[in-house]
Design a protein around this nucleic acid. Structure first.
Length: 779
DNA sequence: TTAATCGTACTTTTT
DNA sequence: GTACGATTAA
């Protein structure tokens, strides 16, 4: 049970400001010192969000508003949680380790362990990742007689996962949400899938978010316990919360109402996982008494980089109003690298890095190469290896998703949770011991008939009447596990696992086979053994079940080592929250970034644009865009068109390597056609001289004055040469008599007849006809 | 009934 | 490149 400590009501909180509050600006300070009541912090990229969050928690403790373990801080990655925790420890000492700080999944699974019995689970439940889930779904599909080549388990998983995150039950889904034949199939699978998980005493990633809601709604007394306990709740990256996360935290916060959420709608990049932007957009409605503090000063990037980022993101229509600015230098111009193909691209990048490192006395750790899809990493790795430049690949196929690791952990899961049929199926013939497909289906049928788990069924294989030669082999399997289980109670964790590996001959199969592949696999298993050994020594609860829980929720992203003097290679998604002096964004091609929709599915171009925005804003000093004209895809060379995003970028801050500007022929707001036709590179060799406002603080409102066709001096308003009508542009700052200052988000037509969508600081977004609105252009 | 070999379709992002 | 499935040999 968690320790529930009463608040220290008697003690008087200190009235002075905390001593650590020296290096913050006014907005940050306001956010830190705000303690009670709901608070929304809109934190633009690089605006010192983590600092505010850590100071805010430290202040709550300093002001004696709560004990450390009465604070709940939720993040999306373990790494973010760990970093924040470390920083708070630096501020207020070791007691910060008692804060409930972690990812939604890890914190909720912790609560679920405590309360498992209330949900009909035991505290040793297994956690299924997507690989496990796909296997379960596949087997259900096969049972239902579907061809799993035509009906892809992943597609079904996707539909089910969406339904779960929307808190739609199988019954409700069947009645209301079936719109296609695939939906119909998913509806059939959904119910069985839930039943199967329950029988296996297993929860998938979605369950970790949903089950707490079920728990709270069915057991008000338990909800109340947690409501009372968590006096302050903080949520990072609120724009990425899905409906389930929203609902769960809403329930928890309902008591004290001390909920502080931090987010940036411009960085919402997880809608494919059910993230719902409206959670952050509607925070004000959910909590009418909430305060709202925007953090708009950027401390990370140069003016050029920020200008570039803003020129991209303002092409999106739906966003909260905010204006990022910085006092940093204008910095270097952004460089576009055009390449023949992906190998050319990779080599060019590696050479640029070596070059820049020498010239600017940088370390390899100052560089990051970002890409849209994981498979792009392969060519890059090749190039880095060939030139001997150290690199660190982050993400990709997670260590814990590798086949050999999943096999070993399936054995371990089975020890802790014998009713986990999925894990049993995974290893009953691994390594091959003569228990094949036929035997397994027979066993499953028998188990179903007696309504028993597979483990219970094979406990008495002799009486099952299955294929005779298999009986002895299964007996061996059961024996090994039973002896391993005994070993676990007698000796330590590491020894037990070593014993298991010996008995099963799992490692031996790799030793005997002398391929490169098997060597790698063996090394990976040894790596796992190391991890177990380390866990056993360092954890204060060194149980097998604790270890399994921990590894099921870590990702390779968490392994990113910022001290390692190596270039970081990762996806744009993985880079969120990080910063690097030099960033390369690669593969800027149509159908890659922005990604192309697969078979009929349409892509959310605004989300892709936000993704591009996230990538740009990772850069501190220098930024490179690169694309290839040809790329090897699906086993063949394909002609690629450069990304439309390159056409949307403010041309005044970007140059090709030769110093040419990149320009677009269409109007800036009209992106959408594929790249090549609408663009050209003009080879004017004029040096980059910044724009008219260079030297003054950079504001996004001044962007359009830097547009190529402009004189650069005046108000930046353009008029049609024939009619003399004003040409409206998105991004223009205007003033309305009634609504006050605002910014044009979208425009259609010119002159008085134009229809404009304007975002006003005070009243929000409005649609106007120019003639009636009487807008005054201010920049 | 099981194991090994060969051929084929597919690559978005992650807790 | 690779991870499945189908096909074949034992």
């Amino acid at each position: 049970m968690p320790t529930f400590v009463l608040q220290n009501d008697g003690e008087k909180p200190p009235h002075s400001e905390p001593p650590f509050l020296t290096d913050v600006n006014d907005a940050q300070k306001k956010a830190v010192l705000h303690t009670d009541g709901p608070l929304l912090i809109i934190a633009g990229a690089g605006s010192g969000k983590t600092r505010v969050l850590t100071y805010r928690i430290a202040n709550l403790l300093y002001q004696k508003k709560a004990w450390p373990n009465q604070i709940l801080a939720l993040t999306f990655t373990n790494k973010a949680a760990r970093e924040m925790q470390e920083r708070i420890v630096d501020l207020i000492g070791e007691k910060a380790n008692r804060i409930w700080m972690g990812t939604f999944h890890s914190i909720f699974s912790r609560i679920l362990r405590f309360e498992a019995e209330h949900l009909g689970y035991t505290r040793d439940f297994s956690i299924y990742d997507t690989v496990d889930t796909d296997r379960v779904i596949k087997s259900i599909l096969q049972e239902l007689g579907f061809n799993t080549r035509e009906v892809k388990p992943q597609a079904v998983r996707f539909i089910i996962s969406n339904a779960k995150n929307q808190l739609i039950s199988p019954e409700a889904f069947k009645n209301k949400f079936v719109q296609s034949s695939l939906d119909d199939i998913a509806a059939q699978v959904y119910e069985r899938y839930i039943a199967r998980c329950r029988q296996n005493n297993a929860m998938d990633f979605d369950d970790l978010l949903i089950k707490p809601i079920e728990l709270f709604e069915h057991h008000p007394e338990i909800l109340q316990k947690y409501q009372n306990h968590f006096r302050y709740i903080l949520i990072d990256e609120y724009q990425d919360t899905n409906h389930a996360q929203y609902r769960a935290t809403q329930l928890l916060a309902a008591g004290h109402q001390n909920i502080c959420v931090v987010g940036d709608d411009s960085q919402s990049i997880y809608s494919f996982r059910g993230a719902d932007i409206s959670n952050i957009l509607n925070f004000k409605e959910d909590y009418p008494d909430s305060a709202q503090i925007p953090l708009e000063q950027n401390y990370r990037s140069t003016k050029s980089i920020l200008q570039c980022a803003d020129s991209v993101i303002r092409q999106n229509t739906s966003r909260l109003d905010k204006t990022l600015w910085t006092q940093n230098d204008r910095g270097e111009i952004i460089t576009v690298l055009e390449n023949y193909d992906e190998r050319d691209e990779a080599n060019r990048i590696v050479r640029s890095i070596e070059d820049l490192k020498m010239r600017e006395h940088l370390s390899f750790r100052d560089f990051a190469v970002l890409y849209r899809t994981n498979y792009q990493s392969r060519v890059l790795e090749d190039a880095f290896r060939r030139r001997g430049v150290p690199y660190q690949l982050v993400g990709g196929i997670s260590f814990y998703q590798r086949k050999e690791i999943k096999d070993v952990t399936a054995y371990l899961r089975l020890l802790v949770n014998p009713h986990d049929d999925e894990s049993l199926l995974r290893v009953i013939n691994e390594p091959a011991r003569g228990v094949g497909e036929k035997t397994i289906t027979n066993l499953q049928q028998i188990a179903r008939k007696h309504n028993k788990s597979l483990w219970d069924t094979i406990g008495d294989v002799e009486s099952t009447g299955i294929y005779k030669p298999a009986i002895g082999r299964i007996r061996d399997f059961v024996d090994i596990l039973e002896r391993t289980g005994k070993k676990l109670t007698d000796t330590g964790l590491t020894d037990t696992v070593r014993f298991l590996l010996d008995e099963t001959g799992y490692v031996k199969q790799f030793v005997e086979e002398h391929s490169h592949d098997s060597l790698m696999r063996r090394q990976n298993v040894m790596e796992l053994l190391n991890a177990i050994s380390y866990f056993e020594k360092s954890s204060n609860t060194p149980s097998l079940s604790a270890f399994l829980q921990e590894i099921s929720l870590v990702t390779d992203l968490d392994a990113h080592d910022t001290d390692d003097p190596a270039v970081t290679l990762m996806t744009v998604h993985g880079s969120k929250g990080l910063e690097f002096p030099v960033v390369f964004i690669t593969g800027l091609e149509e159908d890659l970034f922005p990604i192309g929709g697969r078979s009929g599915e349409d892509v959310d171009i605004e989300e892709e644009r936000r993704l591009f925005y996230v990538a740009i804003t990772r850069a501190e000093k220098r930024l490179y865009f690169s694309y290839a004209k040809n790329r090897f895809r699906f086993g063949e060379q394909v002609d690629m068109n450069r990304s439309r995003f390159l056409d949307e970028v403010d041309p005044s801050v970007v140059r090709t390597e030769t110093g040419a500007t990149i320009r677009q022929t269409g109007s800036p707001g009209m992106a959408g056609r594929s790249g090549k036709s609408g663009t050209y590179i003009s080879y004017d060799q004029s040096n980059y001289d910044g724009n008219a406002g260079a030297g003054s603080d950079f504001h996004s409102e001044s962007y359009d004055s830097a547009a190529p066709a402009d004189d650069g001096g005046g108000m930046g308003v353009e008029y049609d040469q024939n009619t003399g009508e004003i040409i409206w542009r998105s991004g223009m700052a205007v003033i309305h008599k009634k609504f006050g200052p605002g910014k044009i988000v979208q425009c259609q037509g010119q002159g008085d007849d134009a229809r404009l969508t304007v975002f006003f600081k005070n009243v929000g977004q409005k649609k106007l006809v120019a003639r009636l609105a009487q807008l005054k252009v201010i920049g």
